[in-house]
Amino acid sequence: MAAGGDHGSPDSYRSPLASRYASPEMCFVFSDRYKFRTWRQLWLWLAEAEQTLGLPITDEQIQEMKSNLENIDFKMAAEEEKRLRHDVMAHVHTFGHCCPKAAGIIHLGATSCYVGDNTDLIILRNALDLLLPKLARVISRLADFAKERASLPTLGFTHFQPAQLTTVGKRCCLWIQDLCMDLQNLKRVRDDLRFRGVKGTTGTQASFLQLFEGDDHKVEQLDKMVTEKAGFKRAFIITGQTYTRKVDIEVLSVLASLGASVHKICTDIRLLANLKEMEEPFEKQQIGSSAMPYKRNPMRSERCCSLARHLMTLVMDPLQTASVQWFERTLDDSANRRICLAEAFLTADTILNTLQNISEGLVVYPKVIERRIRQELPFMATENIIMAMVKAGGSRQDCHEKIRVLSQQAASVVKQEGGDNDLIERIQVDAYFSPIHSQLDHLLDPSSFTGRASQQVQRFLEEEVYPLLKPYESVMKVKAELCL
């Protein structure tokens, strides 16, 4: 049975990233139509530049190519590739079939990587351009969430054990800070992308030097003109047959890092959902379990974690691919890159769409948070109580021993009897502590235990987050809708 299948058929496997999760716009960027249309555009740009620099290419040939950029006979191309065992030459023939007058000058002087690699770089750039505003929107939604809850005390956790208090907004800023680093890295790697350009079979530009009869300047002009037509500021000066596969490492490393950030955020949300302090959106008709109707599973956060793990592992592909590119190139890269580049971007696209949807509907339960604080705060307040007693004339050592005994009794009630923490009640009825009984409410005010959390939130948002989001103001209103 021949390899390949009808990918629109229910009898043929289709990647869930495309069929179930990723956005239509990201799927289109990695589609065959987008790819092969870009090949034709690159052939047109090459012909236009070659004509401008004096090669015998007519206006009629150029116009014929322009008129057929979208006229792609995919069936013919597939048949040609089956016959020739070469995808680029299959599309040269297919393009030439609908451009008979231009057929002889299509791909003039070029090698397969002229269309293959340059198209990949265009796709990487455009895919990054799709991700950047999506990530900015996630940051914006979380920034709104953090600002609104900047002063809401909550129990902090280290080692997932109760620690000092923080605020809900401050905790959210930990998430935002990681995503801001990801946004900066995505922008950097996007701006650092260079075009492969017009380089020939081993990167020496020998074929173009021959076409222009040894004119170095025209060869350099050709490279520059096509690079500018493709919208790049610069091209690699040095290439082998391909652009260095280190570029793929750079791009997928940034995406993998984004995956790590999203995994951490969504894990926190899942843990908070278990504590009943916070939940992701839950639709009115949504079913959490087929057997347990009360369940409210954090399905979206779980999906993000599941896909983020996949995204983090994909960076190993370009690392290994770059390491086995012998001399000017081997074909070890080809099949692998067809999979890992598309999957990385479709996965990143999915987790950003999902995280935006989550961040637009996060639900906080202040009463649950308050109750958990009441359970733990008495123990945390013991040092403040000791200091207040010393100020009232008591002995630190005597007070410490009193607190120690009462704390152990209260802990026994919590752990052995399943009761509430009654340390404060014990202190309130103990005559030894009568000098500070009137101060206990103040000493137990949760806001006095959150330090500068709310001020940190305000400063972080104003100095770091809002300036970073400013270039994306025009796209901030787009909502994230999930079908599944």
Rank of each mutant, 00 (worst) to 15 (best):
G5D: 14
H7W: 10
Y13G: 10
Y21C: 01
V29R: 07
F30G: 01
D32Y: 10
Q41C: 13
L42G: 00
W43Y: 05
W43K: 00
I57L: 07
E60I: 10
E60T: 12
I62C: 10
I62T: 09
F74Y: 10
F74R: 13
E79L: 14
V92M: 10
G96C: 06
C98R: 12
C98P: 08
P100C: 06
I106Y: 03
I106F: 08
H107Q: 02
L124C: 13
L128A: 10
R137N: 14
S140Y: 15
L142A: 06
A143S: 14
L152I: 10
Q164N: 09
L165S: 03
T167P: 00
V168A: 07
G169Q: 03
I176N: 06
C180R: 05
D182G: 03
F195L: 10
V198D: 01
T204C: 09
A206H: 11
S207Q: 02
F208C: 09
L211D: 06
Q221S: 11
K224I: 09
E228S: 09
A235D: 09
I237H: 10
I238N: 06
G240V: 02
T242V: 10
K246Q: 03
D248Y: 01
V254S: 11
S261T: 11
K264F: 04
K264M: 04
K264W: 02
C266K: 04
T267D: 04
A273G: 15
N274A: 09
N274I: 04
K276F: 08
F282T: 08
S289M: 03
A291T: 03
R296W: 07
R303D: 00
A308I: 02
Q320K: 04
T321G: 08
A322T: 12
S323F: 02
Q325D: 05
D332E: 01
D332T: 00
S334D: 05
N336L: 13
A342V: 15
L346M: 15
T350G: 09
L362A: 10
P366H: 10
E370L: 12
E370G: 09
I373G: 04
R374K: 13
Q375H: 07
N384L: 11
V390H: 08
G393Q: 08
G393T: 07
Q397M: 08
Q397E: 07
C399V: 13
E401W: 07
K402L: 09
I403F: 08
L406I: 14
S407C: 11
S407A: 10
K415R: 08
E417L: 12
E417H: 07
G419W: 08
E425Q: 11
I427N: 03
I427M: 13
F433H: 06
P435N: 09
L444E: 03
P446E: 05
V457F: 04
V465K: 03
V465P: 00
